[in-house]
Nucleic acid binder design. Structure first.
Lengths: 197, 197
DNA sequence: CAAAATATGGAGACTATCTCCACTTGTCAA
DNA sequence: TTGACAAGTGGAGATAGTCTCCATATTTTG
């Protein structure tokens, strides 16, 4: 899937210019106020070139998303390697909020696109989801976290945080969600199977 | 805001036909595959009529959403009147999941529209948010729930549930989120101020 | 029942998306 | 280097969805 790329030099250049400009526009939050054709000009390529590289807005967004996800997954792996499981999970989730906060426009754009054509991001999201699943699983193994709630629930909560970016008290509420999730995970209910080791 | 309505008989009839058909199409999940003009025909009115009543897709969606919210708020009020606060909150949240589950297409459509032009729904959401806020506040007063997390966080989590409708294990995960939120709210941390009564 | 007010509907203007292909640019072998 | 083939480009124009406008129809009022 990532291996089919004997791309010609200029093609590669254009593709990268497109992604770079996309990230920029995303971050400014102007992605939907901009004609797709105009975006091509903005990035310095023709319409045809834009459409060949990225047949849809979503395809372009996914390319940006990919980089984003990779960064986050790295962070997750690093945390998992250096901290106790429960702490790694907590730090990662708190860090997610920071990250979304710092890239509001981008988060907003991605949330919109995710809602629109959710299938388009399933692949890209999978890596992130895997990272979260791993963090949760490790914490469960440590007995620090209940085992009767799926990691997917955590993803859902994160999704809510990302999608609700525009609420007036976003930051405080987002932190609140994380607090609830973490305390909920730590809750005493349903920790039975853990003691089997 | 709801008081400016000396509508002519036929106008009222059309408006209602529009909303009824909209609810139907929403529920089937076809709202975005349909040309807006075609929707007018489907509802048996001309394009002009559609556009006069609802200048945008969002406006139409909001009208449907309004009814939905009213139903939910009623439920919240009834629960609050008949159950202990903590239980009312729990029942309401579990019920929300049932409701979204039963109207998947509608939930999906609304989530999409919310993400797109979030401002458009702020007004409609407010009633729902107020209901949730009231439920949480009552539970806090009872000392059944921590007071250091805003009710807005609960709204965010609900938003995530609604927006993530299309995940494979949606139902289980949605229930998981509610479990985390409820247990998180019940968590012992930060209940200090409650004892001041 | 006539006049005034209100609402209708669909033809067509407008606008964004996307396709297509004549032309340019890069690559590779000799 | 150079020729020739492959790969990529860009933008004009076809296509399709959105929305406006107004001659006509319906309701209300006096």
């Amino acid at each position: 899937m990532t291996a089919d790329k004997p791309l010609r030099a200029d093609a590669k250049r254009n593709r990268e210019a497109l992604i770079a400009k996309a990230r920029e526009v995303f971050d400014a939050g102007d992605f939907f106020d901009l004609r797709f054709d105009d975006f091509a000009r903005l990035a310095g390529v023709g319409t045809g070139t834009l459409y060949r590289h990225f047949p849809t807005r979503e395809a372009l967004a996914e390319a940006v998303y990919h980089g984003e996800v990779a960064t986050l997954c790295d962070r997750a792996r690093r945390l998992q390697a250096t901290l106790p499981a429960a702490e790694a999970l907590a730090t990662f989730l708190r860090g997610m909020v920071d990250h979304i906060d710092a890239h509001e426009g981008l988060a907003r754009t991605l949330a919109t696109l995710m809602a629109d054509r959710s299938g388009a991001f399933a692949e890209g999201s999978q890596a992130l989801e895997q990272a979260v699943t791993d963090l949760v699983a490790a914490a469960v193994r440590d007995g620090a976290v209940r085992d009767d709630v799926d990691a997917g629930a955590v993803m859902m909560a994160l999704h809510g945080i990302g999608a609700a970016h525009d609420r007036p008290g976003w930051r405080a509420e987002a932190d609140g969600v994380i607090t609830l999730v973490l305390d909920g995970l730590r809750s005493s209910a349903g920790r039975s199977a853990t003691s089997a080791s």
